[in-house]
Design a binder for these strands. Sequence first.
RNA 1: UGGGGCGUGGCCAAGCGGUAAGGCACGGGUCUUUGGAAUCCGCAUGCGUAGGUUCGAAUCCUACCGCCCCAGCCA
Length: 568
Amino acid sequence: MSEKREEDLKTNFIYTMIKEDLEKGALQGSPVHTRFPPEPNGYLHIGHAKAILLNYGIAQDFNGKFNLRFDDTNPIKEEQEFVDSIKEDIKWLGADWEDRLFFSSDYFEVKYQFAIRLIKAGRAYVCDLNQEEIRDYRGTLTEPGKESPYRNRPVEENLDLFERMRKGEFPNGSRVLRAKIDMASGNLNMRDPVLYRILHAEHHRTGDRWCIYPMYDFDHPFSDCLEGITHSLCSIEYTDHRPLYDWIVDNAVELMPEEVKYRSRQTEFARLDMTFTVMSKRKLRRLVEEGFVDGWDDPRMPTIAGLRRRGITPQAIADFQQRVGVSRADSTVDLALLEHCIRQELENTAPRLMVVLDPLKVVITNWPDDKTELCQMENIPGNESAGSREVPFSREIYIERDDFMEDPPKKYFRLAPDREVRLKGAYVIRCDRVVKDSEGNIAELQCSYDPQTRSGSDTSGKKVKGVIHWVSIKDATMIDVNLYDNLFTVENPEEDDEKDFISHINNQSLVVSEDIPAEPAIADVPAGSRFQFMRKGYFYLDPGINNRNKPTFNRIVQLRDSWAKMKK
RNA sequence: UGGGGCGUGGCCAAGCGGUAAGGCACGGGUCUUUGGAAUCCGCAUGCGUAGGUUCGAAUCCUACCGCCCCAGCCA
């Protein structure tokens, strides 16, 4: 990518803001410091990849630092299993947190101390209202709330109660610690938000050491302050939490200056949405739990694990993220952009192989029965360093069924009766006869080759328009292929609130093809490698399901097909 | 009907008072032993709408319209 292009891509409002901060000296010498704060309660998807690469990219571009911090303040939903998968996914994407792997739960003790200082300052109180009462007292979107009867409890009583909450003297839900802000605020987040709740639950890291846990709004800004995060990026729906974020930061700076490394600021940006898929955790879970896919890492899922198994590269995802850009406007990016990024990369890196996905037998009638000739073919056209290979050619071959038409339309320039076509890397053949079975289906083609037309030493002067791929039958290696397509048939499966998104599932999203003939070179290919099956698409030898006797390839993406477009 | 956010071509997205970048998609040409790739050309007299300020407005002001988010002891 040229420098010019790199510059263009980074003209987003966050980069502009950071540059301004740096020019103004607003960071007071601190390095630019970002973080990615996942909750370990599920799998990461491509939307998270946008956030990860944005945060990591900023740290890189401004010579700063990037932290990974698990937001593990809710022991009921969080598990070690997700910590592991999230770390793996982020590493795979190429974001490096170096030695800065943190957990919100690392700071539970300091946070408890901070809460105590808030109480002492008269800015937080223990509230005995139950959940339903708190909701009632909160008011509605259009009416102000009422103050809790416990709001003006003496500091000493609050301190005592809060300490006993920690000791486990009270059951779940019986009391909470709340900030004393403004029950009449138009912003519901400021109506005395809950800071701590009682949860007698085993935490994946702290075990049973705690039975009170901080809420996100209290925890997150404070964690940012402790880690010295300068730019706390999050998605748009947190915009109305920003006043509360700032309230916490202000109090942290005032009440716990010795602990605060930086007065962090929150900036929101639009989350990523894409056509032909769903992104919400709830919907993805339904796909998994109701068996529409084979798990979180099913290659049709927009999860990082799914994209990885599909064969998509981290480079392609990074390129995609760059091209999508960053703004505050709700947006749904065209899947075609991701596909473009994938093809763009694989075009220059994936070796070519010939595989016939839907075989039709062709007999070269003027080719000797027992003769095999080796055709030299480049692995990546135009890239000599990628080397070449020998592909055996013989009397009986397979071609794609749709590379022949008995009664071709005007602009069809592949094989047809009495027409010629070039077999890629080999000879020009002519179709002399069509053999049909008893039901009238085309069973075999009888063709003749022109010896003058050998690839690379063609003396015939023939100019044939069509070039098709082929596989020698007796030399073929059989493989299995998973032909993946979009999981949904419509661009936006969640558009219609009345209709369940499940009803838009594409029942052709996975077509399994077994015993597909491929050129013999495919037998020696290492798991985890990617290829272009000529004229068909890019494929990935899935290491997860590799059977050495019969390898299984996942289709990553099809090649662009202007013929298919023309037919429409 | 409270608070907040957002509206620039089909989809993203620059632009920050000097006369609409770029990418994807789309259409067309060249080239091609992948109908791939590459390459060239085209694609908003227009920036949600209506007024206003100004020599000059996507950018400033006013009003209106539309979409999204918020009433978890989730994050």
